[in-house]
Design a protein around this nucleic acid. Sequence first.
RNA 1: CGGGGCGUAGCGCAGCCCGGUAGCGCGCCACGUUCGGGACGUGGAGGUCGUAGGUUCGAAUCCUGUCGCCCCGACCA
Length: 492
Amino acid sequence: MAKNIPSRAEDYAQWYVELVKQADLAENSDVRGCMVIKPYGYAIWEKMQQGLDKMFKDTGHVNAYFPLFVPKSMFEAEEKNAEGFAKECAIVTHYRLKTDPVNKGKLIVDPEAKLEEELVVRPTSEAIIWSTYKKWIQSYRDLPILINQWANVVRWEMRTRLFLRTTEFLWQEGHTAHETKQEAEKEAHQMLNVYAEFVENFIGLPVIKGKKSEGEKFPGAVDTYCIEALMQDGKALQAGTSHFLGQNFAQAFDVQFSSKEGKLDYVWGTSWGVTTRLIGALIMAHSDDDGLILPPKLAPIHVVIVPIFRSEEELAKVSAAVEPILKQLRAAGLSVKFDNRDTHKPGFKFAEYEMKGVPVRIAIGPRDLDNGTVEVARRDTKEKSVMKTETVATAIPKLLEEIQQNIYNRALKFRSEMTTKVDSYDEFKKVLDGKGGFILAHWDGTVETEAKIKEETKATVRCIPLDAVEEDGKCVFSGKPSSRRVVFARAY
RNA sequence: CGGGGCGUAGCGCAGCCCGGUAGCGCGCCACGUUCGGGACGUGGAGGUCGUAGGUUCGAAUCCUGUCGCCCCGACCA
């Protein structure tokens, strides 16, 4: 088969970008650092939205929408948050253009239309949301507030990459307000679990749940929890974060409530988010050199049916045989595409749907009509089998479940093989430069050590796993005592 | 923002050093033969060479400015 995707082994970055383009998911736009998400890519995002949204609703959350623009004074209220994002903000300074008196047909910014106060294009919405919550909250009776919003944000990153890091990106951000510290902490953990469950069950990608180090946590948070996944090149990808904000934002925006006891207290907060980066994770974790491999739960098309025919009459006969299969599979809730285009040959279609990661392909031709069979090919293993037509309706849903499970198992096996315990700095560096992956090592817990390790090796503490077992050891870098292993890796 | 590279047809590129009016592959269109793993043949359409200015009889090619993109660093979901 002619290859038009570079191999994973050759150049991982190039392989990834080609996959995105060839599978017709997205492309770079003419706007710097921005991305056009094409219909097929957006369909995957919609699937993710559906899955996540249901989980949010099931845990008591509701959706709302807050403004894109944040007045600078509002933005700077929570100092650490503002400082953390200051370097990557787009700012609106004017509200009008006018025709250029010098250059006919061109426009210039009207200097008369300068805003009195600049508007920051949200890089995240804590500021605008907490300034709104202030108006909504007076009493413990107003709590909790459990709101999520589906939105776009802008972070002026220096270097961008399709889905993984773009100037503008789509995400969901939950922002909750609570009476007590315990309740807010519970919420932060709950949402971390929601994310972990989603990524494992829908994307089929195992994750490590953990807490971020001081150096890596969200600006303005007390604690940042995260899920970390491993990509096929041995680099880690942060797949989602959930922050316990303490009373930081409540204090910054003066959000107080009267408690049952009649005392005035600051509200406790959380925020949590996942982005279209999850699509990048999905691609990098599962794809092979023939293209995407989509987990059935997120595949816009579950099954594609490709007819084999030479003439219109033959197509009519094949179509008649396809009709009941289509009906049955759709009745079973599957998304099925019958690709009866006569403008492309079957081989072309096979390759195309493989590139797009469609989990199951059914081919039906004259030979099958005679035998009462169909050919079923699964994308994950590329295995083909011939099946009696009457068994299709029950076999395909089962096959899809099996594929979903197999994709997860494969990723889990890969991660296990790529997770290494090391006890010395030499070993640490050797593994990092050799096979890569997650490294479990002791760390003295200081920001300085983490910074030095990062400087020397580019590896960071991905997280302190929540399920880490207590174990006495010595920091691989400083030799100081440590009570548990943390996860190190080079990351995206 | 520091270092390097690149903007030529829808996409990927050659031509630039040594100035003379633009070419290749893929894709696209038409017709014919094909059709169970990315078909082939023949014919055809498509580009003010990123942009602004300069040098020159003449600029894709030389010079200057400018915009954008990619790679490596720093930053980051």
